[in-house]
Amino acid sequence: MKHDITFTINGESVHLTVLSHQTLLEVIRNDLGLTGPKYGCSTGECGACSVLLDGEVVNSCLVLAPEADGAEIMTVEGLSEDDELHPLQKSFIDHHGVQCGYCAPGMLISAKALLSRTSRPHEEEIREALVGNLCRCGAYADIIKSIQVASRARR
């Protein structure tokens, strides 16, 4: 079954025809060519596919594309503005918040969601906010530090 849907992604409005059983992840990667969100598990356990859906972090592998009709979506590609890296991205570079990097786009999206409601999160709050993002390299400590430093710099 086909659905004509419209949503905005990283500030741009897109109009698409999708099938009922396509996931938002699939559409973002294959139809829109945005490779930030990654396939990691398809079971909502790893968070590599995280995007913001109407401002809230979700696993895009478990959102059906037609469910996103009318929504506002942000992927990691939408973080930087005019080629200027977002403070979170800069901080991840400076504080080794990235190793193999596969989890990084999802981590950044979770961090963005956290900072949009808590401007100066404590370490414990950051840990809780990242609990749905797995990092096999074990870079959690540096990721947390990157987010903390970025949140302080934003002031």
Partner: peptide
């Protein structure tokens, strides 16, 4: 607060 993850709770 302890339930799963933000990603799961949001959906």
């Amino acid at each position: 607060q302890k339930l799963a993850s933000p990603q799961v709770r949001n959906r």
